[in-house]
Design a protein around this nucleic acid. Structure first.
Length: 305
DNA sequence: TGGAAATGTCTAG
DNA sequence: TAGACCTTTCCAC
């Protein structure tokens, strides 16, 4: 169940182990049989993420000649990788140590990565696998996506045209300025605008709550009332949090908790998300919970003003 | 074993 | 704004 960081990690994983290779595509579940047939046997040319959209090119290095797999994981979609799973993230970003290449048998890219099995290669599909991508060494299984389709480059461009800026996607000349303009052009609550994928790409319910807490910003403040400098700080914070999320695979948002502790213990990972009724770490006020546009909003009424 | 919830988005009314 | 959709996990019974 991903926010933007997970999708970038999937793109990196595909880039490391699938791009440049011929891929056997199938739909063990059957619901994507026709789409898989369009990709089966083609070489994967490219994989990238824009916000929560994953885009994977097949068949040609020319973008407007390739077939593009578009996947959106929705609330509970996930990719499982088996076989050769190259290290990505901290190593790929050049932060942290670069260790010897490791081979992990199976990794799920979602909230937390973990080993899934120890069996033979390729493993039997487990559960509802919508799409399986297979090379001689690696398997990627997709389950539970809300969107999975094959489109052309025109379709990709249409998605890009609608999307708000993503700090890690190179499609905006001035992404920070674009974000500030889009946020401050609206009277809608900033808590709602941060989750609006046409304002900024990749932020979901957890990052939304945590970013507003970090900025000490009342979620109900209209976008137009957010000072420009504070809007710029929000953007820069999103850049940092996304980099950390891509590097670790986990949404680490608390500067006051050591990363190792937050990685190991979910209960101390977030400042306000999922902590309704508990005291705020900063001021002791009980964390509040409200419905905002149909999603649960967590915030501290004591220090987010 | 059944129901609710989940890091999301779309559509109908 | 409510409901639909896609699937898994977790907790109460």
């Amino acid at each position: 169940m991903p926010e933007g960081h997970s999708v970038h990690r999937v793109a990196l994983q595909l880039g490391a182990d699938f791009v440049g290779r011929r891929v056997a595509a199938s739909s063990p579940q059957g619901r994507f049989a026709a789409g898989a047939a369009l990709l089966d046997g083609l070489e994967m040319s490219e994989a990238f993420a824009v916000g929560k959209h994953l885009l994977v090119g097949f068949g040609s290095a020319e973008r407007d000649e390739a077939r593009w797999l578009r996947v959106h994981l929705g609330l509970y979609g996930a990719w499982d990788f088996h076989g050769r799973v190259s290290p990505i993230g901290a190593e790929a970003l050049g932060v942290g140590s670069i260790g010897a290449p490791r081979v992990r048998r199976a990794v799920r890219i979602g909230e937390v990565e973990r080993a899934l099995d120890d069996g033979a290669f390729p493993p039997e599909p487990v559960g509802q696998v919508r799409l399986r991508l297979l090379t001689e060494e690696s398997v990627a299984d997709l389950r539970g996506p809300s969107r999975c389709e094959v489109i052309d480059w025109g379709g990709v461009e249409a998605l890009l045209a609608k999307a708000g800026p993503d700090p890690r996607a190179p499609f905006w000349a001035d992404p920070e300025g674009e974000f500030v303009r889009r946020l401050r052009a609206r009277r809608v609550a900033v808590g709602q605008l941060l989750m609006d994928q046409s304002v900024v790409s990749g932020i979901g319910n957890i990052y939304r709550a945590e970013m507003l807490f970090r900025a000490r910003l009342d979620p109900f403040t209209p976008g137009a009332a957010v000072p420009a400098e504070l809007a710029r700080e929000l953007w820069r914070d999103w850049e940092r949090l996304l980099d950390v999320g891509v590097a670790t695979g986990v949404m680490l948002t608390r500067d006051d908790v050591p990363a190792e502790q937050a990685l190991a213990d979910r209960s101390v990972r977030w400042a306000v998300y999922g902590r309704a009724g508990e005291p705020c770490y900063r001021c002791g006020t009980r964390v509040a919970l409200a419905d905002m546009a149909g999603r649960k909003l967590f915030w501290c009424p004591g220090c987010q003003v």
